[in-house]
């Protein structure tokens, strides 16, 4: 069998989080931006039972030619985790030089809030094995206090991940306008969220 590298490299982005956090909306924006950039795009997500407070994920793949909609384990160039535990849960997907961007705010799973289990210190564990390849972002905090809308958390995360997406800012902004089309106020808030996410990353990397 030949190795799995496609002739042209495919970009693999995995977005994960908890039901209700806007995982699917974020993956809509990324895939639309990739389409506008002229790539072939495939995106896969989980619906139904899994959405009732469960763990949600969306696979996005773009490039010259994309075959299947699912990212093979160990091949995600980027994981955007809207919740730290969820980021850790999907770590097997990360490629050997991939980057994971995590929101620092935790959402407690049932076994933890019912007092049966502890929430493991996944942030520290990730830093230990990945070092600079794990970036922790206070996205919820920025969304709440600086944007004034906690729902823009996902787009703050997008801003903080933009560098690793190989997508032009212009296309990402157009994608946001298309995904939220008709909602001028929301679009404005999301542009701000994007900007603040990007700025935070700059600061982090200095």
């Amino acid at each position: 069998m030949k190795d799995n590298l496609l002739e042209e490299k495919v970009k693999n982005v995995l977005v994960v989080g908890v039901g209700g956090q806007g995982v699917l909306r974020l993956s809509d924006i990324i895939s639309t931006a990739a389409l506008l950039q002229g790539y072939q795009v495939k995106k896969s997500e989980v619906h139904g039972m899994a959405q009732r407070g469960g763990s949600v994920n969306s696979h996005i793949r773009y490039g010259k030619v994309v075959a299947g909609p699912l990212i093979p384990k160990g091949e995600a160039d980027l994981i955007i985790a809207l919740e730290p535990l969820e980021g850790y849960r999907y770590l097997e997907y990360l490629s050997p030089d991939g980057v994971i961007v995590l929101d620092q705010d935790r959402i407690l799973p049932p076994a933890v809030y019912l007092g049966e289990m502890r929430y493991p210190n996944v942030e520290e564990a990730l830093k230990e094995v990945l070092g600079d390849r794990a970036l922790i972002i206070p996205a919820t905090k920025i969304a709440v206090s600086d944007v004034g809308n906690y729902r823009t958390q996902n787009v703050v995360m997008l801003g903080a991940s933009l560098k690793y997406l190989d997508l032009e800012l212009d296309n990402v902004k157009k994608a946001i306008s298309l995904v939220f089309s008709g909602k001028e106020k929301v679009i404005k808030q999301n542009f701000l969220a994007l900007e603040l996410g990007m700025r935070y990353l700059e600061k982090l990397r200095v």
Binding site: V18, S55, R89, L91, P110, A111, A125
Partner: peptide, 19 residues
């Protein structure tokens, strides 16, 4: 990568669907 991890992924607190 999996071997280097401090917590076993299969033993993380799950998020089963809830009412």
């Amino acid at each position: 990568l999996k071997h280097a991890l401090k917590y076993d992924i299969s033993e993380l607190p799950a998020r089963p669907p809830m009412l």
